[in-house]
Design a protein around this nucleic acid. Structure first.
Lengths: 242, 242
DNA sequence: CGGAATGTTGAGCTGCTTCAATCGTCGTGG
DNA sequence: CCACGACGATTGAAGCAGCTCAACATTCCG
């Protein structure tokens, strides 16, 4: 049976701020169903104008853009709690594709309700804008990484960000996290070739800093990782959940 | 004397959608003043929580992030009509620095009014979210460029985007546009070294495709530029103006 | 068992970086 | 009025980080 918002498994996790009971009531109305998809399914397609919006509930996925000649840029990774389809929601069409890389369950919202949210739930509308600004922030950090850092720094940065978010989500513990992606996907996220990504991961493993094999990410030396990445260990700030 | 919103020089330009007279009235209240700064001034500082938000009125600038070791990523270029400080407005602090590269005039808004905008002007709040989603879209395109395209493609892509936006803003005409940046800034925007940027620009010049010298960008072969960039010639969509 | 998908490793090459020197322009102080 | 220094653009040269090509290993699944 579908989860209802009251007992949403994501509520209460460190990454998210609490909802008022009013907001919760609204969300129950806003949510129109649940969607389960297999690994490999395209949830939203670049250029399409889906009538639906989603929040990831279980599972992982990725957002990517394709260049005309087939090169792919992974824009980011989708984890539980991530809101999917904001662009289609406000701009009318998706600017990137969203694909499930594991089996996923998503909460479904009706796009047409977005406007009523702005009209009747200014707090929630504000939260939505907050999320958009947050996405922009993270994309900016990613751009700085891909534009300025070298291979080792990029990989370290990527693993670190993923791990810290996983921690706040309750998906990571004691340096261990399930991470169901392919090396090629990390490579396409960081602007590196697959071969170089593979070699860089190997080097991190040999240095006893972190290993990522068989879909399991193991961090042995978080500080060492942060040092290579050239960044701090700040945890992501709590954010609104839809 | 300060411009008022009615006779805002930006209204009516192709890039922007019209405001209703209601919205215009609100904007007049929302706007609390005007700010003129010299070239080189830092308008907003990464990590700060400015009580003010801005819309660029005249002049150009850039947004950038610094890595801990001093490397700089230019996140994008600021043109007239661009809204500055949304992140500080909703998230409480800026995630990048905004600097004027020419003398600039900016409309000033009070950050504390953002909330009243959500409360009383849902249409404008929606527009704000639209802008945030648009920024996210553009950052995603930039990320794809920096992550996937080679030097020549990146430069071509960058010049093309700038020129097309300039056209819609009335800042470019017949292939000519004033573009007051340094080569180092384009380099830092595209993740290339200054030297390589210089050489790539030279090659575009020698191929009679485009030249950018003495702050003047001249496009001789727009289609050729788009072909190198690996993208189309789509003009930016009209967007809300604040 | 065969084939497809993913990961791993070797080898050679090059696009881009880094270092460094030169040139032109411009504002400043003597 | 000229010398000086600062800054940005330009060009040469050398080196390497990361790419491409290619072969092989491993796992999984029908």
């Amino acid at each position: 049976m579908a989860t209802n918002c009251q007992n949403c498994p994501l509520r209460g996790r460190q990454l998210f701020v609490d909802l008022t009971s009013d907001e919760l009531d609204f969300m129950k109305e806003f949510k129109i169903g649940e969607l389960s998809v297999d690994a490999g399914t395209t949830v939203l397609l670049e250029g399409s104008s889906s009538p639906q919006l989603y929040t990831a509930l279980y599972g992982m996925g990725l957002r990517y853009k394709m260049l005309d000649d087939g090169r792919r840029q992974v824009v980011n990774f989708v984890f539980p709690g991530d809101f999917i389809g904001l662009q289609a929601g406000v701009m009318g069409e998706m600017q990137h594709t969203v694909e499930a890389t594991t089996n996923m369950t998503l909460c479904v919202f009706s796009r047409s309700e977005i406007w009523s949210l702005f009209k009747h739930q200014p707090e929630r509308a504000y939260d939505l804008t907050w999320l958009a600004a947050q996405e922009e922030h993270f994309l900016g950090e990613t751009l700085a990484t891909v534009g300025q850092r070298n291979g080792a720094e990029r990989i370290a940065w990527g693993l670190l960000k993923i791990y810290l978010k996983g921690e706040q989500l309750g998906l990571a513990k004691d340096g261990v996290m399930k991470l169901s992606y392919k090396q090629a996907e990390i490579a396409d996220a960081l602007g590196l070739s697959l071969v170089h990504t593979n070699r860089t991961l190997k080097s991190l493993r040999e240095k006893q800093i972190a290993a990522w094999q068989n879909d399991i990410l193991t961090i042995w030396d978080l500080e060492g990782l942060a040092k290579i990445a050239g960044t701090g260990l700040d945890r992501p700030k709590p954010r609104p959940l839809f």
